[in-house]
Design a protein around this nucleic acid. Structure first.
Length: 422
RNA sequence: CGGGGUGUGGUGUAAUGGCAGCAUAAGCGCUUUGGGAGCGUUUGGCCCGAGUUCGAAUCUCGGCACCCCGACCA
């Protein structure tokens, strides 16, 4: 895409009402815009990143046999009364013209459970795995930290339905692994740890995926040996030791909860009287699991980790473009290169602006954070070269133009291999 | 919801009772062109309402918005 066609611009200074790094950088780079506290618009660059995250999640979910659905956001009061959650404080409540009460969905157990019940009668119909990527609305008392805690946000929520505890347990483990693959592909694998948290009334623990960063709002006790975390909320109950190895060498870290999975067991199947017949003809309650990832929060966490004083440094799988092409006053040659790169299927952001100086283009490219930058100028063309640089690294390589396709193939190989979309 | 803070051109800031100024962005002209260019020029602003005062961006009251700390966060 030509940068002259991009409708957003970068800004030099972050608005003073944003203190978090993720919001400051994403707004300055033109990825997002704040409408009101905890509510953000995704602009072209930000939306591309969001879609990348979405596709990674979708691939990994489909890999563990999930099927995607899309559930409503307008929920009638009655379904929430069945589970006694209508009074939950996070629910935004509306009334229509007839006075009927509607809640905005902040989670979807109340929708998915009766839905799946319509199709599942026998053990032969189980298990079922369905997920969606949907807006969630939560009446947070205090929205904060940019994308990390919003009132409206996009979430992937998966629900699984099983005939036995063992089957639930088996699938639960599978999802755990898929989650780690997702966080790894988003570039935060190294900083993200499985963490035990309160399990509510129906299981010992829930599991969170906590990403270590200074600006996280959670606090976890991380066992150096097992790499298992314990959320502060239950550390007292665990007697300040690792539940796995019983070791007491725990390091306290600030972190962001980027994912959360838990076993619902029969909490919702009971509420909706969702039973099936097993292979002996006995009626039993279906057992459920539930698994969430907040996409915006995940993006926020990625930015909190991957940036420097100049701006964003995007992990290659999340970048809105494969490379950023900068023309420093050699329009004809750069234009041709742009066309050639596109023919190779490489996604290019082409800074073709003629009224901007070299310095401006460099600074803005650093802010936007596309992993690879190519510069074409008088200087490089004199050597028959372009200049290639990886964001966040000082090294600059000069590459002969005729060798570029092969060169980029090497550099972008891993990227292209993973770019299948659904 | 408790506590604290802040609202001034698009963005960032100054003026603390007496002519609303600066930077940046934007428009125009000329010059420039490898790390947010230079000169000239133009456009654009005191969150809303009430009060005090000869006079309010500034003081008082109310409202609204946003940020931070805490509580909350299946």
């Amino acid at each position: 895409m030509k940068q002259t066609q991009l409708f957003t611009k970068t800004i030099k200074e972050a608005p003073k009402d944003e203190k978090s790094i993720n919001a400051q950088l994403l707004i300055r780079a033109g990825f997002i815009d704040k409408l009101t506290a905890g509510v953000y618009s995704y602009l072209p660059l930000g939306l591309r990143v969001l879609k990348k995250i979405e596709n990674i999640i979708r691939e990994e979910m489909n890999n563990i046999s999930c099927q995607e659905v899309f559930l409503p956001v307008l929920h009638p009061k009655e379904i929430w009364q069945k589970t006694e959650r209508w009074q939950y404080p996070e629910m935004f409540k509306l009334k229509n013209r007839q006075g009927k009460e509607i809640g905005l969905g902040w989670t979807h157990e109340e929708v998915i459970t009766p839905l799946v019940k319509k199709f599942v009668k026998s053990y032969k119909d189980l298990p079922v795995f369905v997920y969606q990527i949907q807006d969630k609305f939560r009446d947070e008392l205090r929205a904060k930290s940019g994308l990390l805690r919003g009132r409206e946000f996009i979430m992937k929520d998966l629900y699984s339905f099983h005939q036995s505890d063992t089957d639930l347990e088996r699938y639960y483990t599978k999802v755990k692994k898929a989650y780690f693959r997702i966080f790894k592909r988003c570039g935060i694998g190294r900083q993200t740890f499985l963490t035990l948290a309160s399990g509510g009334a129906f299981s010992g623990y829930s599991h969170e995926f906590q990403t270590i960063t200074e600006f996280g709002e959670d606090e976890i006790y991380l066992c150096q040996k097992c790499k298992l975390g314990v959320n502060r909320e239950i550390i007292q109950k665990e007697k300040y030791q690792c539940p796995k190895c019983k070791g007491k060498k725990l390091v306290i870290k600030k972190s962001i909860e980027v994912g959360n999975i838990f076993k619902l067991k029969d909490r919702f199947s009971k509420a909706f009287d969702f039973k099936f017949r097993d292979n002996k003809g006995m009626e039993k309650f279906v057992l459920m699991g539930c698994y969430g990832i907040g996409l915006g929060r995940l993006l926020g966490a990625v930015i909190e980790i991957h940036h420097d004083e100049k701006g964003i440094i995007l992990p290659k799988e999340l970048s809105p473009f494969d490379l950023h092409l900068l023309d420093l006053g050699r329009k004809k040659e750069t234009e041709k290169l742009y066309q050639d790169l596109q023919k190779q299927g490489i996604k290019v952001l082409y800074d073709n602006r003629e009224d901007k100086t070299a310095g401006t283009k460099f600074v803005e490219a650093d802010l936007i954070g596309i992993p690879w930058r190519i510069v074409v100028s008088e200087r490089t063309l004199a050597k028959g070269c372009i200049e290639l640089k990886k964001r966040g690294r000082p090294k600059i390589e000069f590459v002969k133009i005729k060798h570029l396709p092969q060169f980029l193939n090497e550099k972008l190989k891993t990227l292209n291999a993973k770019q299948k979309c659904f």
